[in-house]
Amino acid sequence: MDGNGRWATNRGWPRLVGHRKGAERVKEIVRCAPDLGIKWLTIYAFSTENWKRSTEEVLGLMSIFARYIEREADRLAAESVRMRFIGDRSRLDPKLQKLMAGIEARTAVYDRLNLTVAINYGGRDEITRAARDLAKAVAAGLVDPAQITEAHLTQHLDTADLPDPDLVIRTSGETRTSNFLPWQAAYAEYEFTQTLWPDFSPEELARILGRFGVRERRFGGVVGA
């Protein structure tokens, strides 16, 4: 969801205004997703590299995350949306961690839309943590290293109980994947749009889904095989 800061800067406003506008856009996209046939939606809210930003911006973003959880909990439950988080929570404020755990528990029974929010997430960090956990299992004699498969590592990823993404969309004209789900998105389709995230509308999402729907996905195979 890239482009919040630039959206605000282009208007002569502080970057945090853009992030607040971006949070409002998240609400709209989450609301329309089920009607567009989306069952699983993952949004990249804060990367492991985003700590390099100013203290003011980081603290502001954390405050926005907390307010979103507090203010949207009732609506998400009313609309049968399950919310969960991926990423390393250990660096996050304990109060935010408590809010995250609380809404995960509250919405665990719903499945109209599965909303996953990546906070303090980085794909390389995730794979490193998974490899570390798998190494511990090997050291404990629970796993034979000669028998390790892709499935073993997948079981230790943050997304162990989530399906791999079919489509990855990046806004704002950037054409990098920026460490987002590198393992899981190995066979995902990609869309890069010039639109800054605060301007990304349900209508544009629908157009992208339309293009995705006619793509030929072979997963390394041959058509008709």
Results as ranks from 00 to 15, higher is better:
1 M>P: 07
9 T>G: 15
11 R>H: 04
17 V>C: 12
18 G>W: 06
18 G>M: 06
19 H>S: 04
20 R>L: 12
20 R>K: 15
20 R>N: 13
21 K>P: 11
21 K>D: 15
22 G>L: 09
22 G>K: 00
23 A>V: 13
23 A>K: 00
31 R>A: 13
33 A>Y: 05
35 D>I: 02
36 L>K: 07
39 K>M: 08
40 W>H: 13
41 L>M: 11
42 T>L: 04
43 I>G: 07
43 I>A: 14
44 Y>H: 10
45 A>N: 01
47 S>L: 07
49 E>G: 10
49 E>M: 10
51 W>A: 01
51 W>G: 06
52 K>N: 13
54 S>I: 05
55 T>C: 01
56 E>N: 03
59 L>S: 09
60 G>A: 00
61 L>I: 01
69 I>L: 14
70 E>Y: 09
70 E>W: 02
70 E>N: 10
71 R>A: 13
73 A>T: 14
73 A>S: 15
74 D>A: 15
75 R>Y: 07
75 R>M: 04
77 A>M: 13
77 A>Y: 03
78 A>K: 14
79 E>C: 11
80 S>W: 01
81 V>R: 00
82 R>V: 03
90 S>R: 09
93 D>I: 01
99 L>T: 01
99 L>A: 13
99 L>F: 05
104 E>I: 05
105 A>F: 02
105 A>C: 05
107 T>K: 09
108 A>D: 10
110 Y>H: 15
111 D>H: 10
113 L>K: 02
113 L>T: 08
115 L>R: 09
118 A>Q: 05
119 I>G: 02
119 I>H: 04
120 N>V: 09
123 G>K: 00
124 R>A: 08
125 D>F: 06
127 I>V: 14
131 A>Q: 06
132 R>I: 06
134 L>Y: 01
135 A>M: 04
138 V>L: 06
138 V>Q: 03
140 A>V: 01
142 L>D: 14
143 V>G: 08
150 E>D: 12
150 E>G: 07
151 A>C: 09
151 A>F: 04
152 H>R: 02
154 T>Q: 15
156 H>V: 01
157 L>A: 03
158 D>C: 14
159 T>I: 08
159 T>W: 03
161 D>T: 15
162 L>A: 11
163 P>V: 04
163 P>I: 10
165 P>C: 02
166 D>P: 03
174 E>R: 12
176 R>T: 13
176 R>F: 14
179 N>D: 14
179 N>W: 12
183 W>Q: 01
183 W>A: 01
184 Q>I: 08
184 Q>N: 00
186 A>K: 08
188 A>M: 08
189 E>W: 04
190 Y>W: 14
190 Y>N: 05
193 T>Q: 02
194 Q>W: 11
194 Q>I: 08
202 P>T: 05
204 E>G: 08
204 E>Q: 15
206 A>F: 10
207 R>F: 11
210 G>D: 12
212 F>K: 00
213 G>S: 12
216 E>Y: 03
222 V>Y: 11
222 V>P: 13
224 G>C: 07
224 G>V: 13
224 G>K: 06
224 G>S: 04
225 A>H: 10
225 A>D: 12
